[in-house]
Design a protein around this nucleic acid. Sequence first.
DNA 1: ACAAGAATCTTGACAATGACTATATCGGTG
DNA 2: CACCGATATAGTCATTGTCAAGATTCTTGT
Lengths: 197, 197
Amino acid sequence: MTETMSRYHHGDLRAAVLRRAEEVLRESGTDALSLRGIARDLGVSHAAPSAHFRDKNALFDALAVAGFRRLGEVMDAALATRGSLTDDLVAFAAAYLDFATDNPALLSVMFARKHSETAGAEIAEAVAAAFAHPTALLTDAQARGEVVDGDPEVIGITVLAALQGLATFVGSGFVTPEQSHGMVEDVVATLMRGLAR
Amino acid sequence: MTETMSRYHHGDLRAAVLRRAEEVLRESGTDALSLRGIARDLGVSHAAPSAHFRDKNALFDALAVAGFRRLGEVMDAALATRGSLTDDLVAFAAAYLDFATDNPALLSVMFARKHSETAGAEIAEAVAAAFAHPTALLTDAQARGEVVDGDPEVIGITVLAALQGLATFVGSGFVTPEQSHGMVEDVVATLMRGLAR
DNA sequence: ACAAGAATCTTGACAATGACTATATCGGTG
DNA sequence: CACCGATATAGTCATTGTCAAGATTCTTGT
């Protein structure tokens, strides 16, 4: 599985393309990403990736799926050891923001608005899987009576939206990663207590 | 001021370019936006826009500034008539989400992570101006004792992040505009009451 | 009024990219 | 072992962003 690097002109492209694409995304941003550039970096011909990705959008779709898978793993890891609900939420939020800080370009690709219809379903599945753990965290707490009654969908989306919004602010530079790190606990506390006095 | 359409080959480009760019953004999305295409649509030579926008990024920067200006106007209008804090927040949130629904591509340009350093300051200024009204809404309420004590920065960012996150979900199709519309009141209520029981 | 200079627009060119077609090579299967 | 699909290559094309001169319009100082 890991023995064939590129003896000939064959190998496990697709995986290599995805890996390299994520690297470029992390190191140089979205618009530094080109199919030809990746092919060049991997030592294959400029049209080789087209055998695995019909389109550049297909590559973006695959990157989005992979991104949500990894984000899901990160959040699962953060929620492996359970404490109080607040502690769990802080850990979850910190993990989300760390991911956003480390992969800002990937995150914006994940939430881009141009996924093909066919890939949309696959992405939606990956999203559901990624957010399954955190939403379960809330619905469980709701079942135990630690969280307000109400549509779990609304509650979950509100929390996730707050984190994604903060991640967007970090990604666009309006909030520094340090600021976001320092704010996580207070933001979660604000979400828990609510605004009203 | 509005008399010179384009008798000759001169006119008020820059404004025309910005206007057309926003149209393309709204109608066809970000990657359908090309300098040459805009020039073509406006009947000028392909390099004409370069006199007003050094770079394609410079155009994006200008679009971001214009976007935050318009977003600020929209929010100001929504907060023109004040009611209860909750009502005001709902009106504000609805206006934000309407803007996001009507201009998804523009919103992603506004929060893109590649603003030149020089333009960064101008954008930051526009952002501050746009969010001045909503944040004042919260700090005023805080001063009147209607909102929890605590760092106003954190409280404001939490609310704005929740809206921006929801806007992102709408923009990427994970939440439909209808759903977001139906959720606004509940989301604001959730933010007001908090999660904890 | 008018010449000088700045601002704006045009034309031409170039390299890079995404996408397409035709062709060659590899791997597995009957 | 021949066949065929999957995979990779080479070649080509239109489009795009960017740059460099050069032309045209507007402004400004005198």
